[in-house]
């Protein structure tokens, strides 16, 4: 007896010109669980993540989040495609590697921009929620600052709060700590751990092996556009079956 997965991905394919980036990607994510995508650079893990909100449009396959499903193999007009992609995109929220905060808006406005102007929710209510979220990521006192006035770790925490403000079903993290100075990584991972503990459904592309070990319910190891190994964190990281998984982990954990 298992719950219905919140996210299911089947037969995902994507090529950039002659180069096949994704070949037949299948996986599911149960509600309230954390999935970490590992893999060497160029393995396609970021492309998988970006396919989930159609920032990258796959050539074939389906993505379903909750009750919204898009079949990318199906031919459709430009307008229909945009409408469908938009519906799927609204199911999730994304935290970017380079945070991509809106530099011309204050921290608070970064959080309210989507809910107020795109979702059309009442501003008063959204602002109140946004202040709670800023409190939660420890930045209540920086609400009126501009992103350029914050440190990298603070910026990324605002990025997380901005994603949460959308009240998504699914949180997507694209290497959220990769562009941070090492001493700032902890504060961001700390917030992500809290979210996991609160029961958020998360898909995370990351090189943070210790984070994966502690938080992930499921680890997918991608190599060369396919999922080479999958399973609970303890198994994939603690006792990998595939030689290339072992090789990758070895390079990450013991680089010298």
């Amino acid at each position: 007896m298992s719950t219905t997965p919140l996210l299911s991905v089947t037969g995902l394919r994507k090529s950039f010109g002659d180069h096949e980036v994704l070949r037949d990607i299948d996986f599911t994510v149960d509600p309230g669980t954390v999935t970490v995508l590992l893999g060497p650079s160029g393995s396609g893990k970021t492309t998988v993540l970006r396919s989930l909100n159609t920032l990258e449009v796959p050539d074939a396959g389906t993505v379903r989040i909750d009750d919204v499903e898009v079949d990318f193999s199906q031919p459709r007009g430009r307008r229909d495609a945009e409408r469908e992609f938009f519906r799927l995109r609204c199911q999730s929220a994304m935290v970017f590697q380079s945070h991509n905060l809106f530099p011309h808006r204050t921290v608070l406005e970064n959080l309210t921009e989507g809910p107020v102007h795109a979702q059309g929710r009442p501003e008063e209510e959204v602002v109140a929620e946004a202040r709670v979220l800023l409190e939660r990521v420890g930045l209540a006192n920086r609400a009126d600052a501009f992103p350029g006035q914050l440190s990298g770790g603070q910026q990324q925490r605002v990025g997380i709060a901005r994603a949460l403000a959308l009240q998504p079903r699914l949180m997507l993290f694209d290497e959220p700590t990769s562009s941070l100075d090492p001493e700032l990584v902890g504060e961001v991972l700390g917030v992500m751990k809290d979210l996991a503990a609160e029961g958020w459904t998360m898909v995370v592309v990351s090189h943070e092996i210790r984070f994966a070990q502690q938080v992930a319910d499921q680890v997918l190891f991608l190599d060369n556009g396919v999922i080479a190994e999958r399973g609970p964190a303890a198994q994939v990281i603690g006792d990998p079956h595939e030689p290339r998984t072992r090789q990758f982990l070895h390079r990450i954990l013991d680089p010298i």
Binding site: M94, F96, N100
Partner: peptide, 16 residues
Amino acid sequence: RGQTEAAATVGMGYAL
């Protein structure tokens, strides 16, 4: 480009 992508992920269409 990241600005347009971020706008898309917070639910904005082209005009917005």
